[in-house]
């Protein structure tokens, strides 16, 4: 008898759709993936909906409404394994900029009638609400890593994904250090690996899409960034982007926000 295929579900919270699109961007592997699993819930790709429980659930996006928080609890109950994909689901994403500001002010900037909006004052990662079996980093996720995570979970093994910094990947690729060679400020020393050290290979400094690496210590990098011409306000903004609420990045931009703009 043919073994029953594992049921895969893909859910979206507050997000840009980019991480789930990464799955559809696997043009060479998509039909093979679809052959190995039963796609039971994936609204962006199919109108067919199969009831839970699901063997493997991917969640994109952050929690910014009470409704989504409740929905996430139901999703967790229906899921044997739950994996978050991307910076929103893993760290609150760019939406977490509201955590450090006045959300009512943002609403007034964008909407004429902010009283009709239902939104929370914070954007929080999935793990702040339910248990998570694996967190895949990135804004967006890297599709090779996404395939590796799917492969690992479907075969009951841990994903082979490192938590070292982008710096190490540049050395492996043989990319010349943009900080040393060109004086370009770079977050590579404190940023989680995963993108394949992309920006330095385009002569650009890393800007932290994958959030802090396992042993990130941004305060130690601060003098190097300011020596290369970044003001402290600019350094603070570098960390206040797609992983603004990831603890190591949040600590650094909040610490800088408390200081006065230097006069040098």
């Amino acid at each position: 008898m043919k073994a029953k295929k594992p049921k895969l579900a893909v859910f979206k919270l507050a997000s840009c759709d980019g991480c789930q699109l990464s799955l559809l961007d696997c043009e060479d592997e998509l039909l093979a993936v679809a052959g190995a699993v039963e796609i039971a819930y994936f609204l962006e790709a199919t109108s067919r909906i199969v009831k839970g429980p699901y063997d493997l659930t991917l969640v994109e996006g952050s929690i910014t409404t009470e409704h989504d928080a409740e929905r996430l609890r139901l999703i967790r109950k229906q899921s044997k394994k739950l994996i978050t994909i991307g910076a929103c689901a893993t760290a609150g994403g760019i939406q977490a900029l509201r955590n450090f500001a006045d959300v009512a002010e943002y609403a007034r900037v964008v909407y004429a009638r902010p009283d009709t909006l239902k939104t929370l004052a914070t954007s929080t990662p999935v793990a702040a609400h339910v248990a998570v079996d694996y967190e895949l980093r990135g804004c967006p996720v890297d599709k090779r890593q996404l395939l590796e995570v799917l492969n690992a979970f479907l075969n009951g093994r841990p994903p082979r994904i490192g938590s070292h910094s982008v710096c190490l990947d540049c050395k492996r690729k043989g990319t010349v250090c943009v900080m040393v060679a060109h004086g370009t400020p770079c977050l590579g020393p404190v940023t989680h690996s995963g993108c394949g050290a992309l920006c330095p290979s385009y002569t650009r400094g890393c800007f932290g899409c994958f959030g802090p690496s396992a042993s990130a210590h941004p305060a130690a990098l601060r003098p190097a960034l300011t020596q290369l011409g970044k003001t402290e306000a600019e350094v603070a903004r570098l960390y206040a982007t797609f992983n603004a609420a990831a603890p190591a990045f949040a600590a650094e931009h909040q610490s800088l926000a408390k200081r006065k703009e230097p006069t040098t």
Binding site: L13, I94, Y106, A107, V110, L117, T119, R237
Partner: peptide, 16 residues
């Protein structure tokens, strides 16, 4: 959920 991008852009550098 509302996403407030125009709000996030205030105070950022034009290059960002």
């Amino acid at each position: 959920p509302p996403r407030f991008f125009e709000g996030f852009l205030r105070g950022r550098s034009q290059l960002e």
